[in-house]
Amino acid sequence: MSNFLARRMNSAGASCSYNPNYGLSGFSSPSYVRNPRQGCVRVFAVNYDPEKMFKRPPETGLIARRMTHKMMEQNKEFASQMQRAKDDIRRQVLTRREARNPPDDGLELIEYMLNTDAEDMEFEVARCRPKLTPVFFKQLDSVIGAERFSAKPDQERLAELDTLRQYLEEAVEAVDKAVVKTASATDRLKKLLTSKDKKETILEMAAANEIDQALVDLLQQNIDAAKAAEQTGPAEFMEKVKVAVSKYLVTV
Rank of each mutant, 00 (worst) to 15 (best):
Q166E: 04
A159C: 00
K191T: 13
L132H: 06
E77S: 14
A207R: 13
M82V: 07
D87P: 05
N115I: 01
S15L: 08
K76G: 03
D212V: 08
V41G: 00
K152W: 11
R96S: 15
E236N: 14
L114V: 09
Q38S: 10
L218E: 05
E124N: 08
R34Q: 01
V41D: 04
E210Y: 01
T186I: 02
R188M: 10
Q213L: 13
P130K: 06
S29Q: 09
F27M: 09
D88R: 11
M67Y: 02
K131V: 00
C16V: 11
P30K: 02
M113G: 06
K196M: 01
D162L: 04
A171F: 00
A126H: 12
L114E: 10
R66D: 09
K138G: 02
Q221F: 15
T116Y: 09
S246H: 06
I144F: 10
S17R: 05
E236D: 14
E124I: 07
R7M: 05
I202T: 06
L140T: 03
R65D: 11
V243Q: 08
L218H: 12
T194P: 00
V216G: 02
S29Y: 10
T68L: 04
E77R: 12
S246W: 03
V243K: 08
Q139W: 05
L132I: 07
Y248K: 12
C16F: 13
N35K: 05
V175H: 12
M67D: 09
N75E: 12
N21G: 13
D87E: 15
S17N: 03
Y167G: 04
R37I: 01
Q38H: 07
D88G: 04
A126E: 15
A146M: 11
R42G: 03
N35P: 01
N19M: 02
E156H: 05
V135I: 05
M53C: 01
R7H: 10
P30M: 04
L193Y: 02
E204G: 04
A178L: 10
V252K: 04
R42I: 09
K191W: 09
S25R: 08
V250K: 02
M9Q: 05
F78D: 04
M1D: 06
K55W: 02
V243Y: 06
I63T: 10
A214M: 02
M53P: 00
R157Q: 13
R129A: 10
N101R: 06
E124H: 00
G61R: 00
V216C: 15
L189C: 08
V250Y: 00
T68M: 03
V172L: 11
R157T: 10
P20H: 09
L168R: 04
N10S: 15
V172S: 05
L140I: 06
V243A: 11
E77A: 15
Y248I: 00
V33I: 01
D212K: 09
S11Q: 14
V33T: 06
N209D: 10
D104T: 09
L215S: 03
R129Y: 07
L161K: 05
A178K: 15
E119F: 13
L109K: 05
A85R: 12
R8A: 13
D141S: 14
V180L: 13
Y22T: 07
E236Q: 15
V175T: 08
G106R: 06
K196L: 02
E119I: 12
D212Q: 08
L219E: 05
F54V: 14
L24N: 06
S15E: 12
D162A: 01
L158S: 04
Q231L: 02
